[in-house]
């Protein structure tokens, strides 16, 4: 007859290297991103492409996001990705396979959220509209190249 489960677990615990840490590593790996727990997946899935988002005026001239919205391009990019996942994941697709229409929808959501935090005093003179763009960089044989920016959403001021 095999040993009872608690005895076997105790034996396993004694054999396990760094037992408390190993159990915590396993737990964090399984739980993933549920605050305060995290598996810290930053840059875990490196792609040959990377994109940034930014806001411009009506002439596609970039505007400083930090002074305009008190938030960063990086944070807006994370929100854009989250919105994109909401649109693509229900149909079992990866957000990288999103259509232009889906990217535009996600961009509109993020731009609307940014507008809620808009610092009107920081808007440069002559700006009558704000546009939300996505710009992609891609690694190739000759180095890193940039794909032309994609305008995804626009609001008139």
């Amino acid at each position: 007859m095999s040993a009872p489960i608690p005895t076997r677990l105790r034996a396993l615990w004694h054999k396990l290297p760094f037992p408390e840490m190993s159990v915590l590593v396993l737990a964090l790996f399984i739980i993933k991103e549920q605050f305060p727990f995290s598996n810290f997946p930053m840059y875990s899935n490196i792609s040959e492409e990377a994109d940034v988002v930014y806001v411009s005026n009506q002439n596609d001239e970039p505007l400083a996001m930090k002074s305009l919205f008190r938030t960063s391009s990086g944070t807006s990019k994370k929100k854009f990705n989250t919105e994109l996942k909401k649109l693509t994941n229900p149909s079992g697709r990866n957000s990288e396979d999103a259509t232009l229409e889906e990217r535009q929808k996600a961009g509109k959501v993020v731009l609307d959220a940014l507008m809620a935090d808009l610092e009107r005093k920081a808007i440069p003179a002559g700006t009558v509209a704000l546009r939300f763009h996505r710009r992609t960089f891609r690694a190739g044989d000759g180095g890193v190249g940039a794909i032309p920016s994609e305008m995804l959403a626009e609001v008139n001021l």
Partner: peptide, 15 residues
């Protein structure tokens, strides 16, 4: 490529 992204993120934050 991520470094390029980081540089441009910084640029779009601050110009």
């Amino acid at each position: 490529v991520q470094l390029y992204k980081t540089h441009y993120s910084h640029f779009y934050d601050t110009l």
